[in-house]
Lab assay of single mutants.
Amino acid sequence: HMTFVALYDYVASGETDLSFKKGERLQIVNNTEGDWWLAHSLTTGRTGYISSNYVAPSD
């Protein structure tokens, strides 16, 4: 899985979204569905959809 880092804080707007904080590391589970990616937070252990605009590759 690809690992990304959050560029900004994000508060989930629905049950399927994932809230995260700036600097949080996220593993991308599925990024084939446009701008919203299914991600797993390595910080909180939660999984949900994130906006690809809010993250950048961590490598």
Rank of each mutant, 00 (worst) to 15 (best):
E24T: 01
S41P: 00
G14H: 13
G45T: 02
H1W: 13
F4R: 01
K22I: 06
A6D: 00
Y49G: 01
A56Y: 09
T47K: 07
H1R: 06
A12N: 04
I28C: 08
D59T: 12
V5Y: 08
T47N: 05
A6M: 03
V11H: 11
M2L: 12
L42S: 05
G48C: 04
V5K: 02
T43R: 07
E33I: 11
G34A: 11
P57Q: 10
R25W: 13
W36R: 15
G48Y: 03
T3L: 14
Q27S: 08
F4D: 00
S52Y: 07
G23A: 03
R46A: 09
M2R: 12
S58G: 10
N53F: 14
G23Q: 01
S19F: 04
G14S: 14
L42A: 05
E33W: 08
L38M: 07
Y49Q: 03
A39T: 04
V55C: 05
D9T: 06
S19C: 05
Y10L: 03
L42E: 06
L18P: 05
V5F: 06
S58C: 14
L38F: 10
H1I: 13
W37S: 01
Y49S: 02
A39L: 03
A12S: 09
N30C: 12
S13G: 08
Q27H: 11
R46F: 08
T32D: 10
R25Y: 15
H40D: 01
Y54I: 06
S19Q: 05
T32G: 10
I28G: 03
T47H: 07
G48K: 01
N31A: 14
L26N: 00
W36M: 13
S52I: 10
Y49E: 03
T43A: 11
H1F: 13
I28P: 11
S19V: 04
T44E: 01
T44Y: 02
S52R: 12
S19P: 04
N31H: 11
L18T: 03
S58M: 15
R25E: 12
L7V: 05
S13K: 14
I50M: 03
E24Q: 02
G14Y: 11
T44M: 03
T44Q: 03
G34M: 07
G34D: 08
L26D: 02
Y10G: 02
G14L: 11
T47Q: 08
E15S: 12
Y10D: 00
S13R: 13
A6I: 01
S52N: 06
Y49P: 00
D59C: 14
D59W: 13
L42Y: 06
I28Y: 02
T16H: 14
T47I: 09
I50Q: 00
W37E: 00
W37F: 06
I50C: 02
E15L: 12
S13F: 11
V11F: 11
L18S: 01
E15Q: 10
A12P: 04
L18F: 07
T32L: 11
D9P: 03
F20P: 00
S51C: 15
T32P: 08
R25P: 07
F4A: 04
H1C: 14
N53R: 14
D59I: 13
G34C: 08
L18V: 04
G45Y: 03
Y10N: 05
L38C: 11
S41C: 05
F20D: 00
D35H: 11
G34F: 07
L26S: 00
N30F: 10
L26Q: 01
E24P: 00
V11G: 04
A6Y: 02
H1G: 13
G23L: 01
Y49D: 02
D35S: 10
Y8S: 08
L26F: 15
T43K: 07
D17Y: 15
E24V: 01
A39S: 02
S13T: 14
S41V: 02
H40Y: 14
V55R: 02
W36H: 11
H40G: 01
N53W: 15
S52E: 05
L26V: 05
R25V: 15
V11S: 09
F4V: 12
F20M: 04
Y54V: 07
T3V: 15
I50K: 00
P57D: 07
T16E: 12
I28A: 11
D35Q: 11
M2D: 08
S19H: 03
T32Q: 12
W36N: 08
H1P: 14
H40P: 00
T16F: 15
T44D: 03
Q27N: 07
S52H: 07
L7Y: 04
Q27W: 14
N31S: 13
G48L: 02
A39F: 04
V29K: 07
Y8L: 09
W36V: 12
L18Q: 01
V29Q: 08
H40W: 07
I28L: 08
Y49T: 04
P57I: 11
D59G: 12
W36P: 13
T32C: 13
S52M: 12
Y10V: 08
G14D: 10
A12Q: 05
S58P: 08
D35G: 10
G48R: 00
V55L: 09
S41W: 01
S13H: 12
N53G: 10
T43L: 10
G45H: 07
I28T: 03
H1S: 12
I50E: 00
D17E: 15
D17W: 14
L7M: 08
H40M: 15
G48E: 02
L7E: 04
K21N: 09
W37V: 07
L38Y: 09
Y8T: 08
V11M: 09
W36E: 05
L38E: 04
G45L: 05
R25I: 15
K21H: 09
G34L: 07
F20K: 00
Y10P: 00
I28N: 05
I28E: 00
E33L: 13
R46L: 13
L18M: 11
E33V: 11
G34W: 06
Y54G: 06
T3I: 15
S13I: 14
Y49V: 04
L18E: 01
D9Y: 02
S19N: 05
L38Q: 04
F20S: 01
I50P: 00
W37C: 04
D17A: 09
R46K: 14
K22T: 06
F20L: 06
I28M: 06
T44N: 04
G14F: 12
Y54L: 13
L18D: 01
S51I: 09
D59S: 12
I50Y: 01
F4G: 01
D59M: 12
R46V: 06
L18C: 03
K22R: 08
